[in-house]
Design a protein around this nucleic acid. Structure first.
Length: 478
DNA sequence: ATGTTC
């Protein structure tokens, strides 16, 4: 429970934390309403204040409406640093699941067309999409091939026959981020990934078949190709063992090197290094490699999904609406107090949300802004939103990424049982397929915040505007 | 999140 008496309300959905006497540090800004804030742990405040004390911070260290406490840096946290001002890059500010994100695919099928086959489709997807901890797929890469994945991202997957090049414009960074340096990725990290390309993973990762339930913004929905009753498929996963091992390796390395680089860490878990340092550059090279791995992974999973769908509906389309990550540090240009600056924007459990006219968006979305995906908890629902211009979004083009946990996994296991949840959801017409009933219990809808409230507050705070609400029908869990 | 308590 957060004690909101410590905060100062700066706007209807915006709060600041006045610094404690003699503490110093940069500004802290929380985007939320009082109810969402009260549901957050006080640890979120402590963590975001620690972030604000790091050198070279630009603007404020911020949290999104779905924020909760994470490893060192809050999940739902956003912070931008300027390399020229001594700014840092933080492995804790990206997290272990580097470039975890969502690929949203659009079918031309209605739920009425699909519904008669829903049980078969659920079983086929569960069989064909490798899911679960340590689960390996059919691909076995050599180290050399994996290094190509790390340099080329989704372009590598397309070149291997996993989906058309038409997908690429609809992927963040057009499917491949610059700055990847596989030489700075450990042998162990590479080894862990050789059999894990094209796999979903576990925890909050999922593949969901959804139906468009409600349109909030007709013009944006038309630009995104969405209509009520249409079936979508959303794939939520990241860079698997590779990203996790890079996170593990660099958290240790950055924590050890901090003192010699003149940094005093407010929290050891907030390990970081100056952007302009060897170790900082090495982390960025490794992290960008993991981003490309995640983009390739989701491209492969999209292709596997197309294969399954084609067995039932051979002529059905499955086009990429968008693919966006929510655990990254990206180099971006932002206007700050009238001046364009190059910033290293950390988004941990926060989605990039470029507004209309941004050069990074494909032509089809220039007028309405980037599709922003809020992936809901299992069985509740998800939202597609559209990015706002910088006058409205004052969080370096960032928005909420999901419902956000309301309680820990451990706590959730005391309240729910997997079998019971699967049965309850089936009674509501939602098919869950998972190899882990324990995992299902940890992901109980009740362990998350109210996704409707998160989406509503995200819009009210100016971060993005709601376009469509999606209702889940089939969910494949790791 | 995770070769889920390196």
């Amino acid at each position: 429970m957060m004690d909101i008496a410590r905060l100062r309300q700066a706007g209807p959905y915006e709060w600041t934390l006045p610094p404690s006497a003699g503490e110093g540090g940069g500004e802290v800004r929380l985007f939320a309403d009082a109810e969402l804030l009260r549901g957050m742990d006080d640890k979120v405040l402590e963590q975001i204040r620690n972030v604000a004390r790091l050198p070279g911070l630009v603007g404020a260290a911020m949290t999104m409406p779905d924020a909760h406490w994470g490893y060192g840096f809050p999940i739902g946290g956003v912070a931008a640093f300027d390399a020229d001002a001594g700014g840092v890059v933080s492995a804790g500010g990206v997290g272990f699941d580097i470039s975890c994100g969502i690929r949203c695919l659009r079918t031309d099928l209605s739920w009425e067309q699909l519904a008669p086959q829903r049980h078969h489709l659920a079983d086929s997807l569960f069989r064909e999409i490798p899911a679960g901890v340590g689960e390996e797929g059919r691909l076995r890469l050599s180290v050399r091939e994996l290094e190509q994945v790390m340099r080329q991202g989704a372009h590598w997957a397309v070149a291997q026959g996993f989906g058309p090049a038409d997908d690429l414009p609809y992927i963040e960074e057009r499917g491949c981020v610059g700055g990847a340096e596989p030489d700075w990725v450990s042998d162990l990290a590479k080894k862990r990934q050789l059999g894990e390309m094209g796999t979903l993973g576990s925890g909050n990762h999922y593949l969901e078949v959804q139906v468009v339930d409600r349109i909030h913004d007709e013009a944006a929905a038309a630009a995104f190709g969405l209509r009520v009753g249409q079936v979508l498929v959303s794939i939520h996963c990241g860079s698997r063992g590779l990203g996790h091992q890079i996170g593990t390796d660099y958290l240790l390395l950055l924590a050890k090197s901090a003192a010699s680089l003149g940094l005093t860490l407010p929290d050891r878990e907030l390990a970081c290094a100056p952007i302009r340092s060897d170790v900082g550059q090495h982390y960025l090279g490794a992290m960008n490699s993991a981003i490309n791995c995640a983009l390739a992974n989701r491209q492969i999973l999209a292709a596997l999904t197309r294969g399954v769908l084609a067995r039932y509906w051979p002529s059905a389309r499955l086009d990429t609406l968008f693919d966006v990550s929510h655990n990254t540090c990206k180099v971006e240009r932002h206007r700050v107090e009238g001046r364009e600056r190059t910033l290293y924007v950390h988004r941990k459990g926060a989605t990039r949300a470029f507004g209309p006219g941004h050069a990074g968006l494909p032509d089809a979305y220039q007028a309405v802004g980037q599709p922003v995906i809020i992936g809901g908890s299992m069985g509740t629902g998800s939202y597609i939103l559209a990015g706002n211009p910088p006058e409205q979004n004052r969080a370096f083009a960032s928005a909420s990424h999901g419902a956000g946990r309301a309680m820990s996994r451990h706590q959730a296991l005391k309240f729910w049982h997997g079998r019971q949840l699967v049965d309850e959801l089936a009674a509501r017409g939602i098919l869950i397929r998972s190899g882990s009933l324990r995992g299902v219990a940890e992901e109980a809808p009740g362990a998350y915040k109210d996704v409707d409230r998160v989406a509503e507050v995200t819009e009210a705070a100016g971060l993005a505007r709601r376009v469509a609400f999606l209702r889940p029908k089939i969910c494949i869990k790791g």
